[in-house]
Amino acid sequence: MATETRGEEGGLAFHPMDQFIVKPLFGDGPVGIVTITNVTFWMALAVLCVVALLVLGTRGRALVPTRTQSVAELAYGFVYRMVEDVVGKDGLRYFPYIMTLFMFIVFSNFLGLLPLSFTTTSHIAVTAVMAIVVFVTVTVIGFVKNGAGFFGLFWIEAAPLVLRPILAVIEVISYFVRPVSHSIRLAGNMMAGHAVIKVFATFAAIVAISPLSVLAIAAIYALETLVSFIQAYVFAILTCVYLRDALHPHH
């Protein structure tokens, strides 16, 4: 259907979603499970960036940090404080895990902002895996740490007894909606921003409105830079919040 639409467009062809196509990097065979695709390429680039920042940047172990090292320390301190503030002292065991998620998302988002790049985090498959991993981990931690006491998360003692079953149903539903909203929030934000930039870029083909469209692209791009960081932050902080619920279900 989309193909037909495009055929009818004529001069102005909207292909806002084409940037998200997963295709093999070498040749064009089918996409198998271990095929080297653009997903592989951009994820590898994200890994390289993380390594460059956090490993190569701190290679000097300088007492007075270089610029890269101070950025690395800033990132470390940012996530560390977030975990400490939201989860508490006993959450610091899971700090590397949250740091991994945060660094991966932040670098994927920023790399996705490069022109002609591919945004791995705009794919529901990717974010859903991360969200499900968080969900399963948190649930397992909750039951391991608290046993049956973890059900206290759904049975709100502060509410009147009559309301408690209803609230329990709502809480259970919201608990299971978590991974859905958690994954779709990130993927949707990334997809929306990039698609909007692409749509404006298509308008730039019309001479009369191209200056306006270029301005709009610049504005949206600035917004997307902000959103890229905020979504990584939100993903990490929501993971922290879920972790806190698992560790202290009665709060």
Binding site: V39, V51, L54, T100, M103
Partner: peptide, 29 residues
């Protein structure tokens, strides 16, 4: 494909961070 490469990526980042980067930064701090 995506899930496979994502898992590979996350494992690599996790190992790099927990083995090398984070202890080093903590030590420097």
């Amino acid at each position: 494909n995506q899930v496979f490469w994502l898992v590979v990526t996350l494992v690599v980042i996790y190992l790099v961070l927990s083995r090398v980067a984070l202890p080093r930064i903590a030590e420097v701090l």
